[in-house]
Amino acid sequence: MRFYRVLLIGMLLSAVAFGGCVQRTSSKGQALTTDVQTKHVIYAEGRAKLVVGDKALLDNLALTNVHFGKVGNFTRATVTLQNLADTYYHIEWNVQWLDREGFPVESYSVWQQEDMTPNMLQPVKFVGKHPDAWGFVINVRML
C-alpha cells in the first residue's frame, strides 16, 4: 500500500513539473510552446527564440530570416521581426545571448523601441559580445 501511495505522489509531482508547457502550432504555421505559468509564448527557429510578453502579440508577431555569422571571435545575428496583423503595435524588445547549452552568457541588452505598422517587416541586427555566445532570445513586449 505504501508503495502505491509513493508511486501516486511521484506521478502527481511529475505531472506538475512537466505539465507547465503546452506544445501547439500557430495559425501562421510556426511551432509554439506556451508556458502556462508565465503566459508567454516562445517561438523557436533553431538557435533563435522569440518570447512574446503580451497576449495581443501571440499569433501576430513572427521571427523570420534568421542568419548567423562571425565578427572576429563573436557571433552576430540578423533577423526580421514581422507584424502579421492588420494592427499597429508600439513594442520594445531586447536580446539575451545564450551558450550552446542554453545558459545566458551575458546580461540582457538595452530595450529598443519599435513602431510596427500592419504587416511590417523590421530587420534587426545584433552581436553577442561574449566568445561563448551561440544562440539568443528576443523578448518583446507592448508599450
Rank of each mutant, 00 (worst) to 15 (best):
M1K: 08
F3M: 09
Y4E: 12
R5V: 15
L7Y: 06
L7N: 03
L8C: 12
L8I: 08
I9P: 05
G10I: 09
G10Y: 08
G10N: 13
M11L: 15
M11W: 12
L12M: 10
L13E: 02
L13Q: 07
S14C: 11
A15G: 05
F18P: 00
F18C: 05
F18G: 06
F18M: 10
G19N: 11
G20D: 07
G20Y: 14
G20N: 11
C21D: 04
C21F: 06
V22Y: 12
V22W: 14
V22E: 09
T25E: 13
S26K: 03
S26P: 01
S27F: 13
K28R: 09
G29T: 08
G29S: 10
Q30L: 09
Q30V: 06
A31Q: 09
A31I: 09
A31N: 08
T33L: 15
D35W: 10
D35M: 14
Q37S: 13
T38V: 14
T38Q: 09
K39H: 15
K39G: 11
H40L: 07
I42N: 02
Y43W: 11
Y43K: 02
A44R: 14
G46F: 04
A48P: 01
A48M: 04
L50W: 00
L50F: 00
V52N: 03
D54R: 13
D54S: 14
L57C: 07
L58Q: 14
N60H: 15
A62R: 03
L63F: 06
L63D: 01
L63P: 00
T64Q: 14
T64K: 11
T64R: 15
N65C: 09
H67A: 12
H67T: 11
F68S: 03
G69M: 05
G72A: 09
G72C: 08
T75I: 02
R76M: 10
T80V: 15
L81K: 01
Q82H: 10
Q82N: 12
L84H: 00
A85V: 02
Y88W: 11
Y89G: 00
I91W: 03
E92Q: 12
W93P: 00
W93Y: 15
W97H: 01
L98A: 04
L98P: 00
D99K: 09
R100M: 04
R100P: 04
E101M: 08
G102V: 10
P104C: 05
P104Y: 04
V105G: 00
E106A: 11
E106Q: 12
E106V: 03
E106S: 08
S107Y: 12
S107C: 05
S109I: 05
Q112M: 06
Q112W: 02
Q112H: 08
Q112S: 06
Q113T: 14
Q113S: 13
Q113G: 05
E114W: 09
E114R: 15
T117N: 11
P118I: 05
N119G: 08
N119T: 05
L121A: 13
L121D: 15
L121Q: 15
L121S: 15
Q122Y: 10
P123R: 10
V124M: 14
V124C: 06
K125S: 13
V127K: 04
G128M: 02
G128V: 02
G128W: 00
H130S: 11
H130R: 09
P131M: 14
P131N: 13
D132V: 01
D132W: 03
W134K: 07
G135H: 01
G135T: 02
V137I: 12
V137E: 10
V137L: 13
V140D: 01
M142E: 14
